[in-house]
Design a protein around this nucleic acid. Sequence first.
DNA 1: CTTGACCCTCACATCAATGTCAGGGTTTAT
DNA 2: ATAAACCCTGACATTGATGTGAGGGTCAAG
Lengths: 110, 110
Amino acid sequence: MMKIGELSARTGVSIRSIRYYEQQGLLTPVRQENGYREYSPFAEEQVRTIQLYLNLGLSTEQIAGFLHCVLQNKESFCKEVFPVYRQKLAEIEEQIKLLQSIKSNLEERM
Amino acid sequence: MMKIGELSARTGVSIRSIRYYEQQGLLTPVRQENGYREYSPFAEEQVRTIQLYLNLGLSTEQIAGFLHCVLQNKESFCKEVFPVYRQKLAEIEEQIKLLQSIKSNLEERM
DNA sequence: CTTGACCCTCACATCAATGTCAGGGTTTAT
DNA sequence: ATAAACCCTGACATTGATGTGAGGGTCAAG
């Protein structure tokens, strides 16, 4: 069992962010008598997993929708994941298109 | 000479935005005795020009740096424009790269 | 003179994850 | 017992263009 400082040090994620993930329902540490958060060793992987999905551009809300499942199964077994991926892919493709059209526009002007 | 409502109607840009552009130094209407903003007919082109650059992803601050020049000359004569374009292009290319790497990552996971 | 359509300023809200204080309690080592 | 190093909550700030609302002045047509 570890306290928030250690979890932060182990994962490289700020204490502020770890508390925020909890507020968003992504982490649920137990509380000691003194009010301190207490994390199981497993929380380290959990935080890394959260970071992985944030780096894919997903929101904490989206992650909350399937985190529970992917922590227990392989991602490919969690059917909640794929609609999110599909939507994110569509957003990204649209964004790339927009950026490319702006890019062409800028290049013409140069 | 026209008031802000007419300028808004002619350009399709909200009154709120027109006031904001003024606050950012992009428009400088004269004031009537009653405090109303009064725009020359030329302001219409000016607002459209501002929109054009905003749609290229430039900030009002960047636009402020060269708007005066491009309103009086052809864009290609305003040397202040090109560093901004170059920087924006670099940002866009980096952004596209990032999105494409996320996209590949997502596609692998599907 | 009144009503409706304008105009004004000021200021808060948006979005989302994170930084950063303030003010205060706890624990650990000396 | 004290100091350093933790931990807690709550709250404001960031970013940038725009929406929205309050509270109030102006003007034109009836």
